[in-house]
Structures are given as structure tokens and as C-alpha cells.
């Protein structure tokens, strides 16, 4: 089970620790579990579920933000592993380097019924990738792409278009990397032209915000025919920390900024910015990676089968029209 807990997960942590202890105790004594301990474990499990329900009933925006950045939250590669088969990762932008904060490659998604060749759907998956250990975090640049990440993505989007393969993007970044080299090599242009490429694409594009949707660096992968957010993911023009330090001129006002920014899946769904919310397992995606992957998989397959019958021009036109009126300005 999980071993890293957020502050508000602490009550759950205590119960899990107890359950774990009892299980170990049981194992240590014999193969045939002692019935009374089994009962104890069962009642603790029930209690745990109740506590989780209680904790998750009324999450604040700040708690949701913390969940979206939970150190155990599944990342793009986790979903690729759990959702797809035969994933073939493709590297590099053919211009400068391979950006490891962006994963891209082709794979099959097995349809739920039938195991024949026609039971598979080819897809391109492009997503931000964060790291879990310190070493991995550095390797993945904390999920913050340089221009090369966006240029690799564009290359793959066009490749998918050539073969009429639907594009799936996973969004999970604090933002595009604010570095010297990134500026030198045109971070702005990379983001703008990625948005442009996605706007023009004549194949189905489906985006899912799985964690942090940080500003333009996230939007670059978010211009899709269907945009979904996981229940405890966020999507915002600026991080609450950035907002607090710029507008409130006070970094301790992060929670106020989190509330006023309206960046949760529920907020964005109510505003009509996204098409749907993907519900997470009790206690968040990190508590049941298999279950959330199945949810995501079925959302992808449904959206693909809806979009697959539209002709190429319609797919482009529909997406452009969607983004022209998304802000409801003329309503």
C-alpha cells in the first residue's frame, strides 16, 4: 500500500499502519490465519473506508492541488503500462535533443470485447512525464519540458496524422521549463506552434489532465476534440504559488489564490471548458492504479469510437470551432 501521506491523509495512514501490523502478525504465526485477528482486520478495513470517505467528502481546493501533485500519483508511463500494449517509444525532435520530460510513442489499446486483430485500437500517446525519486525527477526535469519536448510532440502528431492514428495526450506538468536554454531555443515559439499543429490536425485528439495542468506548457497538449480531467487534477493559467507571489505579493497566500483561481475539475466542467470529469477511486488515483486506468481506458475507447467516423476536415473544424467559443464570450 502507499507509504507517503499528505497531511490530511494522516488519519488514513494510522489505520493502514495498524492493518499492516496485524497482517504481518498473522503471517508470522501460522498459515491458517487466526480468526479473531481476521475479524479485527476486517473491521479496521471498514473503518478505513469510512475515514477515507469522510476525509474526501469536502476537500478544499488546496487539498485537491496537493492530490494532483501527490508523490504517488500515477504518471504518464504508469498509464501507458496499464492501458496499452506493445508501446513503442519514439525519441527526439530531430533538431536538437530528446526531451525526457515528454514521452511519446505508438501503442495498441485492447478493446474490451474480442481478442482478434480488429479488437485493437492503434493510438499515439504523448504526455508529460514526472519522476518519482530524486534521480528520476532530475532525469525528467520535474515534468517541465524544454522547447524540444514540444517539437518532439509536433513531430509525432504529424506522424500520427499520416497514418490516421488517434492522438491521446496526458497532461501533467507544473509548466514549461523557465530556463536560459529554453528561452534561447524559443520556448514561446515551441508552445505556440504546438497549439497550432494540434489545431490543424485532421485526426481525433483526446486530452486527459491526469495531474497538474500548469499554464501554457499544459495547454500545448490540450487542444483536443475531447478534453477530460481526472477528478483530483487541476488546470490553471498560473500556479497558486505564482499567483500568490505576484498578485498578493505574499507567498503565504497560496491557499487564498488556490480558491480564487477556480482550477479544479469541477470548476472547469461547470464553466464548460472541459468535456468530462473522470472519477477517481476512493482516496485518489494513487490508491488504485488499475481501477483508474480502466476508467481512463474506457473513456479513451468511447471517445475514439465517437470521433473515428468523422471525416478529416470535420475533425479539424470541430476542434477549431470548439476552441473559438470555449470562453463563452458571446453567450
Amino acid at each position: 500500500m502507499t507509504s507517503i501521506y499528505l497531511d490530511f491523509e494522516k488519519p488514513i495512514a494510522e489505520l493502514e499502519k495498524k492493518i499492516e501490523e496485524l497482517k504481518t502478525f498473522n503471517l508470522a504465526f501460522n498459515q491458517n490465519n487466526i480468526a479473531s485477528i481476521d475479524d479485527e482486520i476486517n473491521s479496521l478495513e471498514i473503518k478505513k473506508e469510512k475515514v477515507i470517505r469522510e476525509v474526501f467528502k469536502n476537500l478544499t481546493n488546496w487539498q485537491i492541488i496537493q492530490l494532483s501533485r501527490h508523490p504517488l500519483r500515477p504518471y504518464t508511463l504508469d498509464y501507458i503500462e496499464l492501458i496499452t500494449e506493445n508501446f513503442i517509444e519514439l525519441h527526439g525532435d530531430r533538431l536538437f535533443m530528446d526531451d525526457r520530460s515528454v514521452i511519446g510513442g505508438f501503442a495498441f489499446i485492447k478493446k474490451n470485447n474480442g481478442n482478434k486483430r480488429s479488437g485493437f485500437q492503434s493510438v499515439l500517446i504523448v504526455g508529460h512525464q514526472k519522476g518519482r525519486t530524486t534521480k528520476e525527477k532530475i532525469y525528467r526535469n520535474f515534468g517541465m519540458p524544454n522547447p524540444e519536448g514540444y517539437r518532439k510532440a509536433q513531430r509525432l502528431f504529424k506522424l500520427a496524422e499520416k497514418y490516421s492514428i488517434p492522438v491521446i495526450t496526458f497532461i501533467d506538468t507544473p509548466g514549461a521549463y523557465p530556463g536560459l536554454g529554453a528561452e534561447e531555443r524559443g520556448q514561446s515559439e515551441a508552445i505556440a506552434s504546438t497549439i497550432y499543429t494540434l489545431s490543424n490536425l485532421k485526426i481525433p485528439v483526446i486530452s486527459i489532465v491526469i495531474g497538474e495542468g500548469g499554464s501554457g506548457g499544459a495547454l500545448a497538449f490540450g487542444v483536443a476534440n475531447r478534453v477530460f480531467m481526472l477528478e483530483y487534477s487541476i488546470y490553471s493559467v498560473i500556479s497558486p504559488e505564482g499567483c500568490a507571489s505576484i498578485l498578493y505579493k505574499d507567498a503565504s497566500k497560496t491557499e487564498n489564490a488556490a480558491n480564487t483561481l477556480k482550477l479544479t475539475a469541477k470548476d472547469l466542467f461547470n464553466y464548460g471548458i472541459i468535456d468530462g470529469i473522470i472519477p477517481e477511486p476512493l482516496g485518489g488515483a494513487h490508491r488504485d492504479k488499475v481501477k483508474i486506468s480502466q476508467e481512463i481506458k474506457s473513456i479513451i475507447l468511447d471517445a475514439v469510437s465517437e470521433l473515428k467516423n468523422l471525416d478529416h476536415e470535420t475533425l479539424r473544424a470541430e476542434r477549431i470551432k470548439k476552441f473559438l467559443v470555449l470562453d463563452k464570450f458571446n453567450d
Binding site: 501554457g216 490553471s236 470562453d327
Partner: peptide
């Protein structure tokens, strides 16, 4: 907030 972020994709569209 998110509405101004969406101006980036709107103007590009």
C-alpha cells in the same frame, strides 16, 4: 484564470 489561458488556443485557432 483559466479563461485567459484559453485565449492562447482561441487566438491560434
Amino acid at each position: 484564470g483559466i479563461f485567459s489561458l484559453m485565449q492562447m488556443s482561441k487566438t491560434i485557432a
